[in-house]
Design a protein around this nucleic acid. Structure first.
Length: 693
DNA sequence: AGCACGCCGACT
DNA sequence: GTCGGCGTGCTC
């Protein structure tokens, strides 16, 4: 330990003691604050804000990794300081802006800032970093600024691409004044200058980003999955191909990237030059230089939810980052989520509607099966069958189904009760017509199955997965090519040639030129799911599928009537979202309120809930209520706290304090194996909407 | 998490 | 007397 070094300096010394305030890369809530370390002389100038460092913790010999957050000359800490051990890399990878974002996102969710930083900063790759540093030194000689900019005239400053489908200049104006807006995507497909077919939303977002680049600012474009990412990148490539965008201006954050690719793209974001950053939910944390736009495609897609602690969805991060950076914020989608609707009703987010209005041709149809013997094969109503047959003469037809596989459910052929696995009681299903039935949970083949109710030994197929629907459609349309796209084998695009494209919801490929008809077959089944948010979700899936149709091509929705059908026909998802939100308000369900799930020992949960009630007294006490506790895993219990947005900060700080308090007193492992890890006695998770399903 | 400090039981 | 049990608390 070298702590005595600081004490040797007399107060009158010339050299001021430089102190690095360091965030430790620790999972422990107790350590989620800044620690002060003296910067030794040989690291002065190297230990700057943003760099990764190694520092001693508690005693010499034990080192922890961390990031320098701040360098000051006056230590806030009165005890004797240890010294920074080592600067791991000179590159300041944690920018001031991203640190501030991580801190606030963590605070909002009662989580560790270091957990958020781990999402924001990819693991270091030494070779990649060395190569980048070398390139930086060569590319940017500090003296030749004028000639440099002449050589690399940003093409995007020459001719901004049109943002069509809205009032002239409407989107551009919103971007210029850095507005927060919900943008209704034009529900059709379009061809890029490079010849690729993409959803028009992709070209809209690409044009928005290029326009922002023309303002000298970066954009972050966040999409839920890689198929959306491919469309958006194709749209950007289209602008590259006509010289409206330089390919070096695009940076990627992609789940498919290798560690070195990811780090290379991350480093490129750190460069001074504004960029268009395209990626999945992690992209929301990219260290964009001079951020001018944050745009989310289809914000309600569950893939925007971060599965890692502290589980903050990209839209929540986007809202925090928008406030910190002052960038424009765009929620682009076909349907309107209740979440965005709430922000619109608060006038926190403005609406930009289509202008002129492009209306898909949606036809609701009753689910009554046809009397036509061909249509009966596929259980398709006559009108839908006729539509499909006619459309198939000229181009591809999309058939959206609810579930993948063949027959999702098997039943006993004598008593009709659902068949269960004899190993684990899971549901049995069939992979194809002749496949041996297997368990959907444990995968065991049901070899010598007998019904637990009536001793029957044969099955009946119940329900239709994508491949069974495909098989049936193949019989109904004998000469037609049938393409299946589902969770296991999903396609990004299909050609313009006639074909039946059977896809599970969310896995629909883009067709060149758009589908000549869209059939939404499993509406009833999709709606039958027992969930509070099922209507909102169905509307999103259906809207997205309908938006893949060619202009004026019919989209037939089978077996769905009432308000949902009316919403699709009039394409007024906003109105539906408003009535959904009103229902959630009366029920006190998200997004009308927020949630915090508190799990732990009965005592720790009870005391956390008590502190919560103590922290919001008086008139605010009505803004919070607690459901439970109910039994959870082990001998733990779970309570759900519902609270108004206005007391969110209080709830988060109170629960955070309870987590830290409980982190200290660990329970003794009574009679547990030696390697047993004691779980924390209190865990908190914010805005887990699945908990109410 | 680790690791030190601290205050009670059976041992050379 | 003291070696060591692990409950409690801190980490710049």
């Amino acid at each position: 330990m070298t702590g005595a070094g600081g004490a040797d300096r007399s107060p009158g010394d010339i050299a001021p003691v430089l102190v690095a305030r360091v965030m430790l890369e620790s999972l422990l809530p107790q350590l989620d604050r800044l620690f002060d370390y003296r910067i030794p002389d040989h690291l002065v100038g190297l230990a700057v804000p943003g760099v990764r460092v190694k520092v001693p913790l508690r005693s010499a010999g034990r080192v922890s990794r961390g990031y320098v957050i701040e360098v000051t000359s006056d230590a806030g800490y009165s005890g004797s300081l240890s010294e920074v051990d080592e600067v791991i890399s000179p590159v300041p990878v944690l920018t001031t802006e991203v640190w501030a974002l991580a801190r606030r996102v963590a605070d909002r969710a009662a989580g560790n800032a270091s957990d958020v930083v781990r999402l924001a900063v990819p693991p270091r790759q030494v070779r990649v970093e060395k190569a980048w540093q070398l390139r930086q030194a060569v590319v940017a000689p500090p003296d030749s600024e004028s000639t440099d900019s002449e050589n690399t005239i940003a093409p995007e400053t020459l001719t901004p691409p049109q943002i069509t489908g809205y009032g002239p200049g409407a989107v551009e104006a919103a971007l210029e004044r850095r507005a927060r807006f919900a943008l209704a995507a034009v529900p059709t497909v379009t061809q890029t200058s490079a010849g690729d077919w993409v959803g028009q939303w992709a070209t809209t977002m690409a044009a928005m980003a290029v326009f922002t680049l023309g303002l000298g600012r970066s954009s972050i474009l966040v999409v839920p999955d890689y198929r959306d990412q491919d469309q958006l990148e194709a749209a950007l490539q289209g602008l590259v191909s006509v010289g409206l965008l330089a390919v070096e201006s695009i940076a990627r954050v992609d789940a498919r990237q290798s560690n070195s690719e990811r780090y290379a793209h991350f480093l490129s974001c750190l460069e001074e030059r504004p960029k268009i950053i395209v990626g999945n939910r992690s992209a929301i944390y990219a260290p964009a230089h001079s951020l001018g736009l944050i745009a989310l495609w289809d914000e309600a897609d569950p893939l925007h939810n971060e599965p890692l602690s502290p589980y903050v969805a990209s839209r929540d991060v986007a809202l925090v980052r928008q406030q910190q950076s002052g960038a424009a914020l765009a929620f682009v989608s076909h349907s309107r989520s209740t979440f965005v609707e709430r922000l619109v009703e608060l006038d926190f987010v403005e609406e930009i509607a289509q202008n002129p209005r492009f209306l898909p041709h949606v036809v609701p149809t009753s689910s009554q099966a046809s009397t036509d013997r061909f249509a009966q094969y596929a259980r398709i109503p006559t009108s839908a069958w006729n539509t499909a047959r006619k459309a198939l003469e000229t181009g591809p037809v999309l058939v959206q189904v609810a579930r993948p596989g063949y027959a999702p459910v098997l039943a006993c052929s004598s008593c009709a009760k659902p068949a269960h696995c004899q190993v684990c009681e899971g549901p049995l299903q069939a992979a194809s017509r002749n496949a041996r039935p297997s368990c959907g949970w444990c995968g065991a083949i049901a070899a010598q199955w007998s019904c637990q109710y009536c001793e029957g030994t044969s099955f009946r197929l119940v329900g239709n997965g994508s491949s069974r629907t495909a098989e049936d459609l193949g019989k109904a349309f004998p000469k037609t090519r049938v393409i299946v796209s589902d969770g296991t084998r999903s396609l990004t695009d299909v050609p313009a040639a006639p074909a039946l494209v059977v896809a599970t919801r969310g896995a629909e490929p883009v067709a060149a030129g758009g589908y000549h008809a869209v059939l939404l077959l499993d509406g009833e089944r999709m709606l039958a799911r027992e969930s509070l948010t099922v209507a909102e979700e169905c509307l999103r899936w259906w809207s997205n599928a309908i938006a893949l149709a060619a202009p004026r091509a019919p989209a037939i929705i089978v077996g769905v009537g009432g308000e949902l059908a009316r919403t699709l026909v009039t394409w007024q998802q906003g109105r539906f979202a408003a009535s959904e939100l009103a229902d959630r308000r009366t029920l006190r369900f998200p997004p009308a309120i927020r949630l915090a799930t508190v799990r732990g020992t009965p005592e720790s949960v009870a005391s956390a809930v008590k502190e919560l009630h103590d922290s919001v007294q008086g008139e605010d006490s009505a803004k919070i209520d607690v459901l439970g506790p109910v039994p959870d895993e082990g001998d733990f219990v779970r309570s759900i706290v519902r609270f108004d947005y206005s007391v969110g900060a209080t709830v988060a700080t109170t629960l955070r304090a309870a987590v830290i308090k409980n982190a200290a007193n660990r329970r003794k492992p009574a009679g547990r194996p030696a390697n047993y890890r004691t779980p924390p006695t209190l865990r908190v998770r914010f805005d887990d909407t699945e908990i109410l399903d």
